[in-house]
Write a protein that binds this DNA or RNA. Structure first.
Length: 363
DNA sequence: CATGCGTGGCG
DNA sequence: TCGCCAAGCAT
C-alpha cells in the first residue's frame, strides 16, 4: 500500500510539539528562524549521539561556558577538551567536535548538507539535524527515534533503516510545509517520549492514523536487532606512588578510552594473587561494563621508595596534577579511592611483580 | 558491512 | 542482578 502524503499525515505533530516541547539549553525559542548559534546546535548534536537528553544537559552547559565559540574550541588543547567530556563516553566525539571546529574556524560553515556531512563526526543523521535545526534546510534527520515512529506509522516490515533514502525523500514536503527545525525535533521528541520502544499510544497525536496500531503490532515494529555478547576479562588496576608522583598511562590514539589517561593494568590471568602482600592496599573490586566488554576490576594502591624508569607509555605525574587529567569512569573510581584510607588485602599480586611490570626493561 | 566505541537508567 | 537501549559514526 502506498504511503499517504507526509505533509498531511504528520500535520498533527507540529501543534503537539509546540505544546509539549521542553526548554532545553540548546534550543532556540523561535522555531521558524535559523538558529542564532549554529555552534550550540553542533555541540548538542554530537553530545546527543547515543546519549540521552538528561545526561547531556549539564555537560552542554559546562561545555559552552568553557568553549563559548568555534574559535575557542579550535584553539583548545586535547586534554582540556577531553576533560570537559570526561564521563560522557564515546570520547572520539570530543575529538571529532574539535576537528570540526578547526575546519569551520578556517573555512567557515559549509553551505550545503553534503558539506556538513563531510565534517568529522557528522554522518547522515547529525548532518541533517544541524542543517534543519541550525539552518532551516529541509533535510530530514532520521535517528533511532524517527525510524521507530515512521516504521510504526507506515507499518514498515523489517529494518526501517534499509529504507532511509526513501523515507527522507518522502519527508521533505513535510519539512517544507511545517518547518524543518520544528518537524525534525517533533519527530524525535515523539519517539523519545511517546512512541518509545514500549509505546504510550494514549498520548500520541498520530494514534488515529498509525498503521501498526491499527494492526495491533506496535510491539513487534520495528524488529529488535540482536547484539553480540560482551567479552569478559579480569585485571588488576594499579595506582603506584613514589616521591609524590603517580604512574599513569598516557592516552592512546585509538581503541577503548582513547584520548584518556589510565592507570596501569595487569592481566589478572598472568599475575596470580599471592597471600600476604604487606605493602599493598586493596579494595573490593567491581565489574566495569562497556558496550562490548565486561571487566572484573581489582583496584590496588602501592607505594614504593623511589621513582624508577617507567615502561614505554607510562609517565610519573605529580599528585596535584592528577585532577586535571581526563579519566574514564573506571579510573576515576581508583583516583577517588586513593584519596581515602584503604584496607590491607588478604590476596594481591606480589608487589615486586607489579613494579617490574611497570618498569622499563633494564639495559 | 559487522564491529567497536562509554555510560547511566530502566523494567 | 542483568539485559536492553539512548538524538550514530568510522573503519
Amino acid at each position: 500500500m502506498p504511503w499517504p502524503a507526509a505533509s498531511a499525515l504528520l500535520a498533527p505533530l507540529a501543534p503537539w510539539f509546540e505544546a509539549v516541547r521542553r526548554d532545553l539549553p540548546w534550543r532556540a525559542p523561535d522555531l521558524d528562524a535559523p538558529h542564532p548559534d549554529p555552534y550550540a546546535v553542533l555541540v548538542s548534536e554530537l553530545m546527543l549521539q547515543q546519549t540521552q537528553v538528561a545526561t547531556v544537559v549539564p555537560y552542554f552547559i559546562r561545555w559552552m561556558a568553557r568553549f563559548p565559540t568555534i574559535r575557542a574550541l579550535a584553539e583548545a588543547d586535547e586534554d582540556t577538551v577531553h576533560k570537559a567530556w570526561e564521563g560522557l563516553g564515546y570520547y572520539r566525539r570530543a575529538r571529532f567536535l574539535k576537528a570540526a571546529a578547526s575546519r569551520i574556524a578556517a573555512e567557515g560553515w559549509p553551505g550545503d548538507l553534503e558539506g556538513l556531512t563531510d565534517l568529522p563526526g557528522l554522518g547522515p543523521y547529525t548532518g541533517a539535524a544541524v542543517g534543519s535545526i541550525a539552518f532551516q534546510w529541509p533535510a530530514p534527520a532520521l535517528d533511532g527515534n524517527a525510524f521507530r515512529v515512521l516504521a510504526r506509522l507506515l507499518l514498515i516490515e523489517g529494518d526501517p533503516k534499509a529504507r532511509a533514502a526513501e523515507l527522507r525523500g518522502w519527508l521533505v514536503p513535510a519539512l517544507e510545509a511545517h518547518g524543518p527545525s520544528r518537524m525534525t525535533q517533533a519527530l524525535m521528541e515523539l519517539g523519545a517520549t511517546v512512541c518509545a520502544p514500549t509505546p504510550a499510544c494514549g498520548g500520541c497525536p498520530l494514534a488515529d492514523r498509525c498503521r501498526a496500531r491499527q494492526a495491533d503490532r506496535t510491539g513487534e515494529i520495528p524488529p529488535v536487532a540482536r547484539r553480540t555478547p560482551p567479552k569478559a576479562s579480569a585485571l588488576w588496576l594499579l595506582a603506584l606512588e613514589a616521591e609524590g608522583h603517580l604512574l599513569l598511562q598516557a592516552p592512546a590514539a585509538k581503541g577503548l578510552l582513547a584520548g584518556l589517561w589510565r592507570w596501569p593494568t595487569l592481566d589478572a590471568e598472568t599475575v596470580p594473587a599471592t597471600p600476604g602482600a604487606p605493602s599493598l592496599i586493596a579494595w573490593p573490586g567491581w565489574t566495569q561494563v562497556y558496550t562490548h566488554r565486561r571487566e572484573s576490576v581489582s583496584p590496588l594502591f602501592l607505594r614504593v621508595e623511589a621513582r624508577f624508569t617507567a615502561a614505554d607509555g607510562l609517565r610519573w605525574i605529580p599528585r596535584d596534577e592528577l585532577s586535571a587529567l581526563p579519566l574514564g569512569k573506571r579510573d576515576q573510581r581508583l583516583r577517588d579511592l586513593i584519596a581515602t584510607p584503604g584496607q590491607r588485602p588478604l590476596e594481591a599480586p606480589d608487589p615486586a611483580v607489579l613494579t617490574r611490570a611497570c618498569a622499563a626493561p633494564s639495559a
